[in-house]
Design a protein around this nucleic acid. Sequence first.
DNA 1: GCTTAGCACTCGGCCCCGCGGGGTGCTAAA
DNA 2: TTTAGCACCCCGCGGGGCCGAGTGCTAAGC
Lengths: 347, 347
Amino acid sequence: MNESTINERARCLLKALIERYIRDGQPVGSKTLLEESGLDISPATVRNVVADLERLGLVHSPHTSAGRVPTEQGYRLFIDNLVSVKPLTSPEVRNIADQLEGDEDMDALVESASSMLSSLSRMAGVVMLPYQQQTSLRRIEFLPLTEGRVLAVLVLGDYDVQNRIIHTTRPYGRSELERIANYLNAQFKGRSLSVVRHELLSAMQGAREDIDRLMREAVSMAEQVFEADSQPDQDYILAGETNLMNYEEMADVARLRQLFEAFNEKRTILDLLDKSLQARGVQIFIGQESGYQALDSCSVVTATYGADDDVLGVLGVIGPTRMAYDRVIPLVDVTAKLLGSVLKQRH
Amino acid sequence: MNESTINERARCLLKALIERYIRDGQPVGSKTLLEESGLDISPATVRNVVADLERLGLVHSPHTSAGRVPTEQGYRLFIDNLVSVKPLTSPEVRNIADQLEGDEDMDALVESASSMLSSLSRMAGVVMLPYQQQTSLRRIEFLPLTEGRVLAVLVLGDYDVQNRIIHTTRPYGRSELERIANYLNAQFKGRSLSVVRHELLSAMQGAREDIDRLMREAVSMAEQVFEADSQPDQDYILAGETNLMNYEEMADVARLRQLFEAFNEKRTILDLLDKSLQARGVQIFIGQESGYQALDSCSVVTATYGADDDVLGVLGVIGPTRMAYDRVIPLVDVTAKLLGSVLKQRH
DNA sequence: GCTTAGCACTCGGCCCCGCGGGGTGCTAAA
DNA sequence: TTTAGCACCCCGCGGGGCCGAGTGCTAAGC
C-alpha cells in the first residue's frame, strides 16, 4: 500500500499522468498516457499498471470508462518524489527583486509580494505580515489627543511605524508625556518586542512602591501599548483572489462563496499559515490535507520568510489542486527568499 | 411615452408587479398579478394593461408566454413615484447607533458602518472614507527615521491619526525637527487641509529670500506631506461582498469575476461614489444607469453623510437590481445620518 | 369605449430515446 | 509478463414529444 510497492515504470506513468492532467484537466486515458510518457509498451500494459495505481489509491476514474484523474494521495506522492521543478528564469527573479526593493514601507512591501505571487501564478497570492515579536523597538513617542486618550507612536524597523491609541485615567501634558517616553526609550530602545513585554511584566510585579510615580505611570502606559499589540499581530494580505474564478474547478458559486468567506474571516487561512510557520522552506497542503472545508479541492503552497535564521512570517499561493506545482514551488520559494533578504537588508 | 400617459390602475399594477417580482424573482403572469394587486378586474384586463406597460418599456417578457419582468425604466419609475418605504424599527436604529458610537478610531467606525449596511441588507455595504479637505489639522509632528527619511505624524480629528514618510536632502536632528513642527503648528493649527495646502502654495511663491532658512525648510517639508495627501485620499471600505454570491442573478462566474475585480480595482466604484457626492440624500443607480459594465444588473443605493452641512463622504449598498428597495432606501438613509452625527459629535 | 370570456397558440422545461465515441477490463495467446 | 482482440460501459448530445403556464386576439357584453 505504500510507495515502495510501485516500480520505476509505474512511477513514470503516474508522473506522466499527473503532468498531463495538470496541463489540460481532462481524465487521461491509456492511449494518451502512453504517448505522454514516451514509454515503449502497449496500451494494454499501461492499463494494467494504471489499474494497480488505482488499487493503491493514487488515481481514480470519475466513472467506468473515462480516463484516470489523480487523487490527493497521488498528488502527494508526485510532489514528494516525482515532480521536476522548473526554476524561474533570472529575468523573472530580477523582476520580483526590483519590485520589492522599490517599496517604501512595510505595507507596500507585503502588498507587492502578494501581488507578485498572484500575477506570476495566476492564482491567489497571500503574504502574512511579519511576526513582530523579534523586531526591536526603535523608539516610542506619546502625543496627547483628548482628555484621557493618548496616541502612542511605535517606530519599529526602518520602515515600520505603528499608531496605538491608549486610555489614561487622567489627562497628561506634553512635557509629562515626553518624560515618560524618554524613560521608556532609555529602558527599552533596541530590545525586541517580546523582551519588552516580558520585562514590563516583571517590572510591574517586582517593584511596587520602590519605584517613583513617573516610572509607574510609564510602565502602565507601556503595558497598554504592548498588550494591544498581541491581538492584531496576525494578519495577511491577499491578492488576486479573483484569478481563482477562472478555473472550472471553482465554477460552483456555493464553493466559491465558502472560499471567499474564509478569505474574509481570515481565521482559517491564518491557522493554516501558522501551521507552516513551524517548518522551514516550502510546504504544500493538498485539498483536504489542510483540514478546512473551505479549501476543498484547493492546494496551498507556502514558504516561510525571514532575515537570517529568524522566521518572520509565511507567504504562499492558493489555487486549485490541479495547479502547475513545478512552476509554483520555485515561485513561492524564490519570493520568500527575496522578501527575506529585503527585510534583512533593512534591519 | 412618459409616465403621465399611464393612469392610476396601470401604476397600481406596475407597483404590484415589481413588488411581486422583487419578492420571488419569477416572471409575473396576469393571474398572479391580479391577486397581488387586489384589484377587482379580470385577468384579461390585466393583460391589456400590462401589454400597454410593455409598449412603454416599463416591463418586458423574457419570451412569448412567460410572465413579465420589470425593465430598468420600470424600476426607475417605481423608485421615483411608487415605492412605499418601510422605515427601520427603532430598535434597529438604536442597534446601528450603538455600534457606531462604540468605535474608537476612524477606521473602525467606517468598517462598522460598512458591515452594518451589509449585514442588514444581506448585500454588499460600502463606505467611502471621509473626504479630508474640510477637516482641520490639529497637530503635526516629525520624527527622524533614517538619514534622509522623516516620519510625519498628522493628528486630524479626535479620532484620526495618519503617518507619512517623507524624504529630505539632508539628515535632520530631533530638535531641528521639533522647531520645524512648532513653526508649522503655530502657522496652520486649526486650519482645514485645503486651506493649509493653499497657503503653502502661496508661501512658496510669494516669499523667496525674505523668509529665513527654518521657515523655508518647514514649508518644503509640509509641501511633501500635504502633496502626498492628494492621492490616497479617495478610498472605501467594502463589506459582505460574498453575500452577493447568494443571488441567482449573480450565478454566472464570469459576471461575478468582473464585479469582484471592479471591487478590487476600486476606480469604478470610486467614480460612482464620486458622482453621488454631488447630490444630497439618497441616490439610486439602477443597472446600466451607472454606466459601468461590471455593474450590469446591479443597483447601487447611496447617500452622502456629513457633519452639519459639510458633505464628508458617501456610503451605500450594492446588490442585484432586484433588491428590496423599500427596506434598503431607509437603511442607507439612516446609516448615513447616524454616521454623520457621530462624526459631528467628535468634531 | 372599456371590459370580459373564450380560445388558439407559443414556447420553455422535462423526460426519454438512440447514437457515437472514448476508454475500460477480461481473456487468451505469444 | 506482455500484448492483441473484443465485448462492454457510460457520458454527452441532439431530437422528439408532452405538459403547463401564459399570452394575444376576437367577439360579445355592459
